[in-house]
Design a binder for these strands. Sequence first.
RNA 1: GCGUCCGUAGCUCAGCCUGGAUCAGAGCAUUUCCGUCCUAAGGAAAGGGUCGUAGGUUCAAAUCCUAUCGGACGCGCCA
Length: 559
Amino acid sequence: MKDVIIKLLTKEARLKEDEIEKILEVPPSSEFGDYSFPCFVLSKREKKSPDKIAEHFAQTIKLPKEIEKIENKGPYLNFFINKNILAEEVLKINSNFGKSSPGKNKKIVIDFSAPNIGKPMHIGHIRSTILGDSIMRIYNFLGYDSVGINYLGDIGLHIGKLIVAYELWLDKEALKKDPVQELLRLYVKFNSKEKSEITEGLEEEFQDNEWTQKAKEKLKLLELGDKKTEKIWEDIRKASGKGFDKVYDLLKVNFNETVGQSEFSEHGKKIVTNALLKGLAKTEKDGAVYVEINGQKKFILRSNQTASYITYDIGAAVERYKKYKFDKMIYVTDFRQSDHFAQLFTILKRFGYDFSDKLIHLPFGTVKFGNEIIATRKGDIILLEDVLKKTIAKADEEIKKRKTQGDAEKVGVGAIKYLVLKSAPSAEVQFSWEQALNFEGDSGPYIQYSYARASSIIKKAGKFNKSKIKIENLNQSEINLVKKIYEFPERVQSACKELNPSIIANYSFELSKAFNEFYHTSPVIGDKSESFRLLLVNSFRTTLKNALYLLGIEVMNEM
RNA sequence: GCGUCCGUAGCUCAGCCUGGAUCAGAGCAUUUCCGUCCUAAGGAAAGGGUCGUAGGUUCAAAUCCUAUCGGACGCGCCA
């Protein structure tokens, strides 16, 4: 429909297609038509007022069948498209609706979730996980071949701390019963010990005390391959992995590859050594290696010759490119790491890796609870598992109240996913129980509910009667629904382009709203336009299902 | 100090990249109405905003530019 208008205008207004595409807009109200062309741009060339130009077009343009009428209103040329033809198009859609293949033969690697071993997943982690999963689904939907990687933080000082704590205070029974809680207890206990020895007046984060030293020693032992320490590390990884899997199962998030950061220590160091030989990096007197970026030293190897955070990332990036030859790799992490990734990309480029141009960092804002940013160190966190349990319990309650056949897990998980995805990635997210447990209005359950209602109609009707369809005299709610459905493919494409699933989340809500209005004004079964409306409901259902699929939210026929 | 992000109704957020039309849109909360009818996790309606502030660019600014205030964050041989 839009392309018909664009074609028409290229001829009439003598502008290029992409120019028109840019200017053509959707008017603020449907009284002004479905598309609108503001004539300001032409007024200079034509030496006429935009009002006059619009008037001229309105009188002279010959209309193709897809367009019902055009009107000039001030400087605007308004197009009213033929709703019957649009409706016909919408009734034809199938389960592939919205798919296209701009991504054919293109490979995308997405690095997301990436929790730290030994720490539990709390609500601060859900964003990377849910966002990354959704972005992967969107890419796949558009024909890309995407690979999801979970890059586990299995090395670093927090591991050293845990090993110390594990040796001193482990409660074996507790670890068996609830590995996540026990590891958290150990971690918090260590940190409180460490903190108790901080000297007043000095920057606490930078202080090394007896406890910090112990943790560093363990880390060194681990690097040297000490058997006993390695065993503990393995135990911690296993226990921790159990906790992660539980969450991923609930969220139905899958990865193509799960790999520990520690794997890339040697690769990273080798690259640094080579760069050093080529004079691309410099050495400090004490042996630490650095690269100078904008006059600042960025260390890529410590003085004791062990790897730093960025060393692993350098190794991992190079190895991944070797393995996947990706067209794009996206890191989905907290915005606080923006500088880190900018530096990583610069370093790779300087070291001669041209694929560095294919790397993208998708930063997202912090999830806050009250005014606090969640810190594992203090232990005052809300576990992701608990959040999910609570929303699922609420869903269960609601289902029981209604005596229907809903799936509490799908509803509860859907509520959380929707809550996370409806905000643009760059925005900070304010987590509150009130919002998480609100199943009305702009929420996941509202949308799932619309789907269930639609299913219910179709179930009751039994079968479609495709032969007897007449499309005429559509009412406003039918037109709105048709138009909304028709928008879907465009929305998917912009969500992909902008790496922003909230576009689809908002769309799902708008679509559901359009359906619910239709539902109230237009009875389906027994009505004289039953056959048409039934097919419309079916198209709605197909579209909503696809939209929710892209968000990782499941639908059900009853709830 | 340098840098990044955010500031739109009481609260949570769309819209800003790619400036346009009458009242700047939703949801929650508040007030009112809708149940013999496909699931009321629904629908209809009301109140509520000088789009942080001040300049500028433009025929036109929530949207672009500059400055400024407020908030979050980054600048470590932590990850």
